[in-house]
Every structure is written in structure tokens, then in C-alpha cells.
Computed example of a mutant assay.
Amino acid sequence: MENIDPDALEPGTEVLVGPGYLAGPGNGRAVFDSLGNAEGWTKVVAFGTDTYYTSPCQRVRVANAVKSHYGGWTITFAEDPLGIPDWIVTFDRHTPDEVVAAFTATLVQGLPNHFADYLTGGKHYTGASPATVFGSHQWEAVPGSRPFHSVSPDGHAAYQMRVGWLHEYDELLAPEKSMWRMSAGVDPVYAPSWQAYFSRYTPQHLLTASAVAFTDPTFVGRAVHQIPERHRSLVDVHLPESAEPAPRTAAALARSSHAEGVPDRRPATAVASSPSLSHAAGSRRQR
């Protein structure tokens, strides 16, 4: 399939973009659908822009506070519905929908039986972990890095694990101090375009679900205007097979030096594994 210069297309043109972690956040529909269609979950819209979801058991709270510092999605779990959260996850406003939706869909599916299906012997247990997912995609650890991080083959995505002791309250109150971080961008370690934070007691199967989506080599759908400007030289863009460019677009493509000779930078393999394993909980509070 031919790579296309996105700047040669109309802004509203629907395209396929890879890698997905550089494609931009998307429109959020997959995340809203995974929560909005969940049986028994309640939804509240506040201030005209912010959306909040609560699980039937009252243990999980999900916030999409548009104008907050991080924007995006904040998710907390508390064994005691009125207590301090046991774990908290923050996806900033630029995190690709696919990474967020993988987490929320797995959360919704596993919550009714307290994630038992994802533990050893459960019907969704595979034994996969974030480490095995990243390793199967040839991500490389950076020797001597503190915090420890591994980087994708193209150098534009990173998975970070904090080292050293930190009081759990500090971790839950400040996302940047979280145990794990996923990020991507031109410089994914020091100046990422987006970041997702997971506190230490986040169930491992949920972390793994996001890791699988993060590393998935499948191209994702976006409108051209949704692709970040700073990523356009780093991604491959294809028209869907059934789509034909408009006459004006076709003329621009004919003039574009990007329409020919652009190497295919897609990863060669895909992860066949799915989310697994769960983790214990502590206690914490929402920021």
C-alpha cells in the first residue's frame, strides 16, 4: 500500500496511520463507548464538558475532565468505595484512544468478579506481562537508565519504570511519580508528546492490556487533521483500500515527493498475546 504525504490531503480525509502511538489521540469514541455501554455504570456530565463514570460496585471512578491539568482520563479503584484509592491511572489528553480503550474495556469486563478471570486459571489468563509484550516487539532496555526505560525500535515510544522507594501517598497524588509510564513522541523519554501513568498497585493485567495496544503494529484510523504536526514526518499514512482521493487531493499527491519512494516503517511482527495477570492493592486518593 502506497505511503501518502498527509499534507497533500484535505484535513478531513479519513486515513490509516502507523505507528498508532504517533497517530494522535483520536476522537475518544472507543473509550466513551466502552464505559457508556457497560451494564450498570452511571454517567454524569458536569460543567458542560466533563464526564464522570462510576461502576455499579462504586469502587471504580473514571473522570474525563477536559480542562484539568492533564485532561484525558483519570481512573481510580478503591476497595472501600468511600476510602482512599488503592490505585490510580492517568492518561493525558494526547494519549491515543486505543491505549486508553484497551484499559477501560478490560477493566469493565473483569470488574464483576474482581478480575478473577485474569488470574492464574482464569479464562482470560495468558501469563503475559508488560515486559513480555515489549520484548516480543524488540523494544530494547537502555542500560543504566534511572528511571529504567525501554525504547521501541524506531526510538519514538518508551516504557518507563521508576526505581527506588517512594511513599505510596506521594505516588498517587503526583502522576509523574507513578511506578510506570508509557510515552511517545519525537523524544519519548525527555520531551514526550503524550504520557500515561500507572501507580504501583495497578492490576498487571490492565497494564498489560494497554501495553498490547501500545505496541500493536496495526494502523489506526484518523482524520488527517488529527495527526500531530510534529509527528507527520515520522508516520506512514495510507488511504483505506476502498477510498479514492478527491480530484484536488489526487492532483496534490501527483506533485508530492512523498507519494513515491517512502520506506515502509511498520513493525514486522505483532503480539499475539492478550492481557493477563492481576496485582494486589494498597490505598490512595484521587488528585
Rank of each mutant, 00 (worst) to 15 (best):
168 E>H: 12
183 S>W: 00
165 W>I: 12
224 V>C: 04
240 P>D: 09
236 D>A: 13
214 F>V: 05
213 A>E: 01
171 E>S: 00
200 R>F: 14
210 S>F: 03
191 A>N: 06
163 V>R: 11
246 A>T: 13
219 F>G: 01
190 Y>N: 09
136 S>N: 11
214 F>K: 00
240 P>H: 09
142 V>I: 14
229 E>T: 09
222 R>G: 04
213 A>R: 03
224 V>Y: 01
224 V>G: 01
130 P>A: 10
161 M>Q: 07
159 Y>H: 09
158 A>S: 13
202 T>D: 07
137 H>Q: 14
118 Y>L: 12
251 A>Y: 05
254 A>H: 09
189 V>R: 02
215 T>H: 01
120 T>R: 13
174 A>D: 15
240 P>L: 09
235 V>K: 01
153 P>W: 08
199 S>T: 15
252 A>D: 11
170 D>Y: 12
215 T>E: 05
234 L>N: 06
229 E>K: 08
189 V>Q: 00
250 A>F: 05
134 F>T: 01
186 V>E: 11
211 A>K: 03
232 R>H: 04
167 H>Y: 12
146 R>H: 13
260 E>V: 10
182 M>Q: 09
153 P>C: 14
194 W>M: 05
119 L>K: 11
165 W>P: 06
180 W>A: 05
174 A>W: 14
232 R>E: 06
137 H>K: 07
120 T>N: 13
163 V>M: 15
174 A>C: 12
250 A>G: 03
139 W>C: 07
206 L>N: 10
143 P>S: 10
120 T>H: 14
179 M>T: 10
247 P>T: 15
220 V>Q: 09
128 A>Y: 05
216 D>I: 10
233 S>I: 02
220 V>W: 02
181 R>W: 02
189 V>F: 02
154 D>N: 15
167 H>V: 14
247 P>D: 15
215 T>K: 00
201 Y>F: 15
137 H>I: 05
176 E>I: 11
167 H>G: 13
207 L>E: 04
196 A>W: 03
215 T>R: 00
217 P>W: 12
135 G>Y: 04
241 E>H: 06
118 Y>D: 04
123 K>V: 14
129 S>L: 07
147 P>R: 07
260 E>R: 04
206 L>H: 13
260 E>W: 02
182 M>R: 03
138 Q>F: 09
178 S>V: 07
213 A>W: 05
155 G>N: 01
133 V>G: 01
166 L>N: 11
199 S>I: 03
205 H>K: 03
248 R>E: 15
